[in-house]
């Protein structure tokens, strides 16, 4: 796929956000997405994926121009793209471009495939949680209760809040790694 410059996507459909800032955000986003995707797949596929994310941002979300909207949205699209990519690999034993039309940002409706994947992800998370240490479980439980890091520090009775940040960081790292490991068991991550 021929790359489209971020600048050309900056002001779609006659909408008029400040072009320079939107263009700049999209340019940087593209760079970051390629960098991320290249760590999970071949460089060409990573560039295509980034390109498709930008097209989607252009065609469906042209009205958004704030970083606070664009970045989380692009993370979500990249995640769906990666899932779709894995599906294709699983189905055909090959990797190929994923059509923009296949990307379905949740609209509240129930997409069976997405629902199934969400259920699988949830199961992986539950398994990872079951394997977590006592401290991490307690920390996560307190976070889900809506406790701030300062309150968690008091609950644990530690003198420095940085200790809590570090614990939390390690716990999440372990959790995410466990989930990734469980996923990789069922799906080949990189092909070709």
């Amino acid at each position: 796929m021929e790359p489209i410059s971020a600048k050309s996507l900056a002001s779609p459909k006659g909408l008029d956000p400040p072009p320079s800032s939107r263009a700049e955000i999209l340019r940087q986003l593209r760079e970051r997405i390629v960098g991320f995707a290249a760590s999970r797949m071949q460089r060409d596929a990573a560039e295509d994926l980034a390109q498709e994310v930008l097209i989607l941002l252009h065609e469906k979300y042209g009205h958004l121009d704030r970083l606070e909207d664009l970045l989380p949205l692009s993370l979500k699209i990249v995640r769906f793209k990666m899932l779709a990519y894995r599906r294709k690999v699983r189905r055909h034993g090959e990797y190929a471009q994923v059509s923009v039309d296949e990307i379905q940002i949740p609209d509240g409706g129930a997409d069976p495939l997405t629902a199934m994947e969400q259920r699988e992800t949830r199961e992986r998370l539950m398994a990872a949680i079951a394997a977590m240490g006592e401290r991490c479980r307690k920390l996560l439980a307190l976070k889900l209760e809506g406790k701030s890091f300062a309150e968690i520090q008091i609950a644990f009775g530690v003198s420095s809040i940085n200790t809590i940040y570090t614990w939390d960081f390690r716990c999440r790292q372990n959790l995410i790694e466990s989930m990734d490991a469980a996923r990789e068991k069922s799906t080949p991550e990189k092909t070709g």
């Binding site: 991320f36 970045l71 993370l75 979500k76 990249v78 995640r79 969400q118 992800t121 949830r122 998370l125 999440r172 959790l175 995410i176 989930m179």
Partner: peptide, 10 residues
């Protein structure tokens, strides 16, 4: 941040 995305969605 991307790695957190799955956890965040859940």
């Amino acid at each position: 941040l991307h790695n957190e995305e799955e956890l965040r969605e859940l």
